[in-house]
Amino acid sequence: MTSAIVSSGLHKSFGSTHALDGLDLDVATGEVHGFLGPNGAGKSTTIRVLLGLLKADAGEVSLLDGDPWRDAAQLHKRLAYVPGDVNLWPNLSGGEVIDLLGRLRGGLDPKKRDDLLQRFDLDPTKKGRAYSKGNRQKVALVAALASDVELLILDEPTSGLDPLMEEVFRQCIEEERHRDRTVLLSSHILSEVEALCDRVSIIRRGKVVESGTLAGLRHLTRTSIQAELSAAPMGLDRLPGVHGLDVEGNRVRCEVDTAQLDGLMKELSEAGIKSLVAQPPTLEELFLRHYEDDGVALEAASR
């Protein structure tokens, strides 16, 4: 498996802010890679370094087997970028911006452009300021998706879209996946990443703290269990990996590390299972687990 993006040990500071603090990222060719983190985690900064718009203070970056700082213009012809904050020129219409950006990248597919305009329900004759944030984002999205490129870099592309448009966006990304294009999708919306991405990297304070397939990541998390049993269970508290155990007569509620699920199930079936609800871990829980230290620290600080 080749990599479209590899970075290791990236550091970038703005004055006293360390935006990136030794960031490692690996995006395989042909995958949809989620780049997940809360506001200010360093997602946009990483992407700007990947695009050669910022120069990293330290560390290695390789993008489509090139150096984005040195060969920016060459590499950019092979990728399309949707910024998090899209600003348009007040005297250019949306259609003109789409065409301009496409041409500067080396051309775009007019059929696909029209198709996308229709699906995103975007009026290309309006001028810059007449667009809302969501519509400005659509302009950038149409320009990117209609270009014939190997790599799409999308920085929180749905932050201004309504749920209907988010759905259209998801379909579009699905299609890109089938065309074997590589997508780096930065987001703080977990359900979106969960629905779309093959692999996820979670970034926190300028560092990637977790990276892998969703299945692999789920393995690190807990499944929540609610069960009604025939008899009161025994010795559940001695099982490894069981958390938040709450036994009320024959009813059991708990969370279990996904790796230890098997052991718990054996114990429960010993006692005879009448009903069972098992909730798979969501990315949200995973996410919260990584950030709950921050939450605790925050609470402590505010006290």
Binding site: W89, G95, E96, V97, D99, R103, K127
Partner: peptide, 29 residues
């Protein structure tokens, strides 16, 4: 709020053929 009295008219749906370089954009601006 945000609007002026001299309203912007709608623009073309597609860019004309010459709008394909930074210089062309700069000229437009």
């Amino acid at each position: 709020i945000g609007a002026g009295l001299l309203r912007a008219r709608p623009g073309p749906a597609t860019a004309s053929r010459w709008l394909r370089s930074p210089l062309a954009l700069a000229w437009r601006l």
